[in-house]
Computed example of a mutant assay.
Amino acid sequence: MRAEKKKKKRKWLRVTGIIFLLLFIGIGAYIFSIYNSLTNAVETMHKPIDREKRDITFKKKEPFTVLMLGVDERAGDKGRSDTVIVMTVNPKQDSVKMLSIPRDTRTEIVGRGTEDKINHAYAFGGVEMSMDTVEKFLDIPIDYYVQMNMEGFQDIVDAVGGVKVNNQLAFTVGKFNFPQGEIELDGREALAYVRMRKNDPQGDFGRQTRQRQIIQGIVNKGASVGSLTKFDNIFDALGKNVSTNMTFDEMKEIQSNYRSAAGNIEQMKIEGSGTKIGGIYYWIINPEDHQRIKSEFKNHLGI
């Protein structure tokens, strides 16, 4: 009887061991699948540019900068960067400073020697001219860029299963109605939400706020456990709609050494006023505020 019990016990252990082994193999395959999809997406997103870049040692937690460009591309047109956001990241201070530059800001377009709207730099010379122009405008080095196709908002929002935002202004765009308060948006709604500016009392600043809300919503949803089942769709949407000069190794080092800074994001605002020059509308930056912004960024970067 005892021998029979031992035999049954060994059989139970063997069966249990096989189950755990299968679970381990299954989880391992799942993790590998996520990693493989991520690396493929990053390889698709990686678009190096012919431009000198500072040598930054991420292990030493050195501050760096990122230029985010939201590009509205049209058929037969290179497009313009309707969203221009500059971020400086300082992990030693555990902080990120973020500035949305109004797209109509009048400044020198580096490489053309003319003054024009800052978002025209992309139309004239792509990412490189945009980086050079913003670099001179703020008098700080621009290390990396992240470019998103504005149409990609729709794909990415749908990939994470929609986003929630706290809408500060009730408005209607076409067939979409956006009441005030917390609302949930699908991809098409999110695209309409971020594009509206003409009926906003804050104009471009109001639109910039909504764009940041959607980006934050995507990040929050993408980081949730529930989104793990959608990782293929998410990575596919990112690969199709986002490009950057960051390598996969750089992304891993930033995630490892700088992630605590993401919890403290300061939204900066630059003052100015709108005017027409030669019949064209421009946003003219207040000189004193312009100097203040440049000084804040330099202090944050330690330069």
Rank of each mutant, 00 (worst) to 15 (best):
A3N: 13
K7A: 12
R10V: 10
K11H: 06
T16M: 14
T16F: 15
G17M: 08
I18T: 12
I19F: 12
F24T: 14
G26S: 15
P48Y: 03
D50N: 15
E52V: 09
R54V: 03
F58E: 06
K61R: 15
P63S: 11
T65W: 01
T65S: 15
L67E: 01
M68Y: 12
L69E: 05
L69T: 01
D72S: 03
R74S: 00
A75S: 13
G76N: 15
G79C: 05
G79H: 07
R80C: 01
D82A: 06
V84D: 08
T88R: 10
N90A: 07
K92M: 07
Q93R: 14
Q93P: 00
V96K: 09
P102V: 04
P102I: 03
R103E: 03
R106W: 05
I109T: 08
G111Q: 10
G113T: 05
E115R: 13
E115Y: 13
D116Q: 12
D116C: 04
K117Y: 03
K117P: 11
H120G: 04
H120F: 02
H120E: 02
A121Y: 00
G125T: 04
E128T: 15
M129D: 04
M129K: 12
M131V: 04
T133S: 11
D139K: 15
Y145T: 01
Q147S: 13
M150F: 02
G152A: 12
D155V: 01
I156F: 04
I156K: 05
G162P: 08
V163R: 11
V165S: 01
N166E: 14
N166P: 01
N167M: 09
L169N: 00
A170G: 14
A170E: 14
T172Y: 01
K175P: 04
N177F: 08
P179I: 08
Q180V: 07
G181A: 09
D186R: 10
A190K: 05
A192M: 10
Y193K: 10
R195K: 14
K198F: 10
D200L: 09
D200M: 10
P201Y: 11
Q202T: 09
Q202S: 12
I215L: 15
G217S: 06
G217V: 01
G226W: 06
S227P: 01
K240G: 02
F248A: 11
E250K: 04
M251D: 03
I254N: 01
S256C: 00
Y258Q: 10
S260M: 11
I265V: 15
Q267S: 12
Q267L: 10
E271D: 13
E271Q: 13
G274H: 03
G278L: 06
I280E: 05
I284A: 10
I285S: 11
E288Q: 14
E288N: 09
D289T: 10
Q291P: 00
Q291E: 14
S295I: 00
F297E: 04
N299R: 14
L301E: 03
I303W: 03
I303C: 01
